[in-house]
Design a protein around this nucleic acid. Structure first.
Lengths: 232, 232
DNA sequence: CCGGTCTATTGGTCAAACCGACTGAACCTC
DNA sequence: GAGGTTCAGTCGGTTTGACCAATAGACCGG
């Protein structure tokens, strides 16, 4: 079975006997080595590719290269999970609220001066973009991810990134950002950064809570949409 | 390309033109219908299967059946992500702490009398199991998942489940549970349930914080292990 | 020394075939 | 007629052998 091959290679990768960047033998080689046909090997590789463990390049010197799964991959599956499971937008938003609110104290505690400087710069740019009518959800998402990065915890940053990343791509509806929302949103972003700079965890959390709750209400208003994710 | 087929079917599923339980045409049918060979169709189905969107059954009346992705699937990919990316056990544990701590107020607020009764029953059973020397990590995980279920938010429950589920399977090291840890763990579980029953969010959060921090310390002690996940 | 071509490697796809698993119905036994 | 048995058709799983397309590196001519 090709499942066996998948598991075998998976184990090799997990055991670090295959490291990111390594190239697996060609499909023909693998097939011969494992005593299966090429088609079977290909199916195994497809699965690994779909799982984000391997990247396949064509042409000479091509083949399957070990990669480290990206948060985008996880985010994609998460998007599938959300858009296909009986999860409602409200539920997802709630989960996001809990998580993003929970990391605030950690962010406040661990943010470096550089973090703060970059956040301030980001807010400034976003306000400019807002005036130019170019402010949108991607920018808001970037801000939230940048805040998560202040925890200096890759796992947290990755999770928040997953929340904000491909998730949005799967939810095409209602991406329009009401202008006043954008204004209020960036204002809250600015206030949050200042609270963070002042190492005032409680105030930062209050601001973030209000910010996220506004989103939650917006999601709740959008009946019929299975999930939403924007607060501008 | 077979990628196109994947995307086509994916879209059909997302658009609810294919609903969970539906059966896709046979591989031969699909191939003929789309003008591609069976091999190509098979690769597409493999990818969908790997993504948890489809379940494949053999035999007559077999074929590809649309399924809703399970949290186990997501958890599996999450486990890959964690064991293959440069995430440390400390980081993952921190993320878990933030999330599980963050949901406590919601759990306290929303737990029904039945939730509380079931949690009490669970604690009682775990204490019996402890005496019999049968208490282990799966039980602890079950408790935490049950607490998450008190939020009555499927997304949150699923996330916590993912944290506790397949994640553990990928981290074989150091599953041994020191007995005194188990004792202290179940005691904390009991205290937590009572705080929850009393609707005392602050106390519940304090208990949970201490409970999770003990885990964090244990993880930190285990140098060399890429990640850990147990608090008994 | 540059640039184009040629060739070997490797993934992508196809076609036809056989196997094993499974279902359902016809059939046979009692 | 009830119940077990057999058999054929359906369907995924795998194999074989072949050809196409992309690509990188060697080779060759100017």
């Amino acid at each position: 079975m090709s499942e066996a091959i998948v598991e075998q290679i998976r184990t090799l990768i997990r055991g670090e006997q295959l490291r990111p960047g390594d190239r697996l033998p060609s499909e023909r080689d693998l097939g011969e080595r494992m005593g299966v046909s090429r088609v079977t090997v290909r199916e195994a590789l497809r699965v690994l590719e779909a799982g984000g463990l391997v990247e396949i390049r064509v042409g000479a010197r091509g083949g399957a290269f070990v990669t480290t799964p990206t948060s985008a991959k996880i985010g994609g599956d998460l998007a599938d999970l959300i858009s296909l499971s009986p999860l409602t937008g409200t539920e997802v938003t709630e989960a996001r609220q809990v998580f993003e609110l929970g990391i605030v104290p950690m962010a406040v505690e661990r943010a470096t001066e550089q973090d703060i400087a970059e956040l301030r710069e980001m807010v400034k740019q976003h306000q400019s973009a807002l005036k130019a009518g170019e402010y949108g959800m991607p920018m808001s998402a970037a801000f939230h991810v940048r805040v998560a990065a202040c925890t200096h915890n890759a796992a947290i940053e990755m999770l928040v990134h997953s929340f904000h990343g491909p998730l949005l791509m799967s939810l095409r509806e209602a991406q329009v950002t009401a202008p006043q929302m954008g204004h209020r949103g960036t204002t809250e972003h600015r206030d949050f950064v200042e609270a963070l700079a002042a190492r005032d965890a409680l105030r930062a959390q209050d601001i973030m809570r209000a910010h996220l709750q506004r989103t939650a209400r917006r999601v709740a208003r959008t009946k019929g949409s299975r999930s939403r994710d924007d607060e501008s």
